[in-house]
Each structure stands twice: as C-alpha cells, then as structure tokens.
C-alpha cells in the first residue's frame, strides 16, 4: 500500500478541540481501542506460526508433554535433519521447487505474450480470443471430465501434469493486458518504424516495461504452484518420486489429525520405524515440514507488497 493513501483525514485531531470532555477524550479512546485491537490481530495471526516454529526446534518426545508456546524447551535441529535425511521429503522439496519455477516462468512469458497481442487494437482476432479467454473464468468442466482429459493426454503420473494444465489464467491475462494498454503507444510505433516485428516489440519493449505488474502476477502464480497439492493427490499419487512437499505434508497432517479428533488413537502412529529411532514424532516432523513449506514464500511477499493492488485490480476485469 502506498503511504499517501493512508490518511484521508489530515485534520482529524483538530475538530474535537473545543468540544466537551467526551469529545476531547473520544480520539484517545478510539486510538487506544484501535491499537489494542490491532495488537490482538497481530498476536492471533502470528502465534500459531511462531508456535509451529518453536515445536519444530523442540525435541519430539518432549513436545508431547505439552507446554511449548513461543520458545523450544529442549532445543534440537533433529527434526530438520530427520526430514532431509529421509529421501522422500528431499525429493518432494525438489519437485516443488521445480514445478514452481517452471510454472512461474512459463505463465509469465506466455500470458504476457498473449496479453500483448490482445492489446493491439488493430489485431484481427483480438475480440474473439479475448472472449474465449474471459469466458473460462465463469465455468469449469469439473473434476471428472478434467481427469479424463489428463488421462487421454497421457499426462497421468508425469511431472508435466503440474505445469501444462495451468499455463495461462484469464484473470492474469486481463490484468496484464490492461496494464499494457496504459503504456504509451508511441513506444510501439517507434519500434515498428525501426523495423521490429511484433514478437521483437513484445520481447524487447513491452516485456521489460511490465515489471511492476509481472512482479505481482509472478508471486501469485508461484504461491499457487508452491501451495498446490490437489493435482499431486489426484494425478500422481501413485508415484512417490513425483510427490510434492505440500502433498507430503497433507499425508502427515491427515494421519496426525485423526489422532487429534479421536484421542483413543495414540500419538506416534503413521511414521516409519526409522523416525522412532531418531526420537522424532509426527507432530515435530509436521512442524518442521510446515516451516520448510512456508518460509520460502514468507521471505518474498513483504518485498512485493506495494504491487499487490495492481494485481488485484478488479475494475480491470470489466470487458
């Protein structure tokens, strides 16, 4: 968010100066209430996450005794060593990184390229193609037909099922196209006079100028790809080497959650014998994977914050 948006009432303090006692007190009461409220919000948002970090650095068997809040009681890095020592988390981490990188690069390149063509007002197929893409925002064939399509295309149990079905999103397309339309037309004209073809104009002129909007879109796409688990669950669940970090986490959580909902099931079920030897428990392993799965994105997003509103511009969806 931009600083200048923040205070639409620059003289807010002045108006109460000659009022009665309550009038003078009101801004103070409101500010106090507001500050307390925001502090509560911050605590409620951060606590579960800090707690997870604390658990991930605490000795597994000790965590079961309870009472871990914001700081580990018996410090250890054993949980992290355990998850990276077991090959399957390591592989899943690699697959997650690969799918996120490839998806983001492909999405950004293809969507911007298409957006550029749809921003050319004299392009003969502009209207048709725009309508074809915009309509995809309003319907979805559904799980079963999509599953059969993936199966017919022989994408089942391949890495490419993570990338190919979601290379372009209509929403991002419209956002980028709207952004390109705000760029000065003269840039394109002068490039044309210099003899550049449309692809060259797109790649050399338009693409570099789209950085602000692409920063946000890239973040959205990357977050979506990194957090996705359903495709791994539906399309590749029979191939362990294609599993993603989120899917591994999902399997682990569903095994520990059942023991939460149903106290008769003892803690510690669901993990391999290897981990019992290493004194780690499903709960501490889960905490460690949660941290590994969330930290990469949490490190990036604060720096892109000022661009968020560009990517969320709903007004631009109107066609």
């Amino acid at each position: 968010m931009d600083n200048r948006q923040i205070s639409p009432q620059p003289n807010a303090g002045i108006k109460y100066r000659k009022n009665s006692g309550i009038g003078r007190l009101e801004p103070f009461l409101f500010t106090t209430f507001n500050t307390v409220f925001m502090i509560c919000l911050v605590i409620v948002t951060l606590y579960p996450f800090l707690n997870t970090i604390a658990v991930s650095f605490n000795v597994g068997n000790d965590t079961i005794r309870g009472g871990i809040y914001l700081w580990p009681r018996e410090w250890t890095t054993q949980n992290y060593k355990a998850i990276f020592a077991s090959g399957y988390v390591y592989d899943a981490f690699f697959i997650s990184v690969a799918r996120t990188l490839i998806s983001t690069l492909l999405n950004i390149f293809l969507t911007t390229m298409l957006a550029y063509t749809l921003s050319r007002k004299d392009y003969v197929f502009r209207k048709v193609i725009t309508v074809i893409f915009v309509l995809t925002m309003y319907f979805n064939a559904g799980l079963i037909p999509n599953y059969f399509l993936i199966k017919d295309l022989h994408l089942l149990n391949t890495f490419w099922v993570y990338v190919v079905p979601s290379m372009i999103s209509a929403f991002n397309l419209i956002v980028i196209r709207t952004y390109i339309l705000t760029l000065p037309e003269a840039l394109i004209e002068s490039a044309k006079i210099d003899g550049a073809g449309d692809f060259k104009i797109f790649w050399r002129v338009i693409f570099p100028l789209c950085k602000p909007v692409l920063a946000t879109i890239a973040l959205f796409v990357a977050v979506g790809a990194w957090n996705a688990w359903f495709d791994a669950f539906i399309y590749t669940s029979s191939r362990q080497h294609l599993s993603t970090l989120q899917y591994e986490l999902m399997k682990l959580i569903s095994s520990t959650m059942n023991s939460n909902a149903n106290p008769s099931v003892a803690h510690g079920s669901g993990m391999t014998a290897e981990s019992a030897r290493d004194m780690v428990t499903p709960i501490s392993i889960r905490a460690a994977i949660t941290v590994v799965a969330s930290v990469p994105i949490l490190l990036v997003y604060p720096f892109l914050q000022k661009y968020f509103v560009v990517g969320l511009n709903v007004g631009s969806v109107k066609e």
Binding site: M1, M38, L41, V42, T45, L46, P48, F49, N51, T52, G66, G67, I68, V223, W226, N227, A228, W229, Q246, L249, M250, I253, T256, M257, N260, P263, I283, R286, T290, A293, S294, I297, L298, Y301, P302, Q305, F308
Partner: peptide, 28 residues
Amino acid sequence: VQTISYLPHFLSWIIVTGIVATSLSIND
C-alpha cells in the same frame, strides 16, 4: 500490521488446516 495480516494468505490450506487442528486439539 498490514504485512503481518497478509501472512496467512500465502500459506496453503494444508498448512492452515494443520494449524487449526493443532490450535483446537484437546491436548495442548
């Protein structure tokens, strides 16, 4: 406050439901 309030949006539902289940569990 804004930056912190955006944080959960970037977590997957897997992580969020894990956090919810942990927060609501009867032991601890």
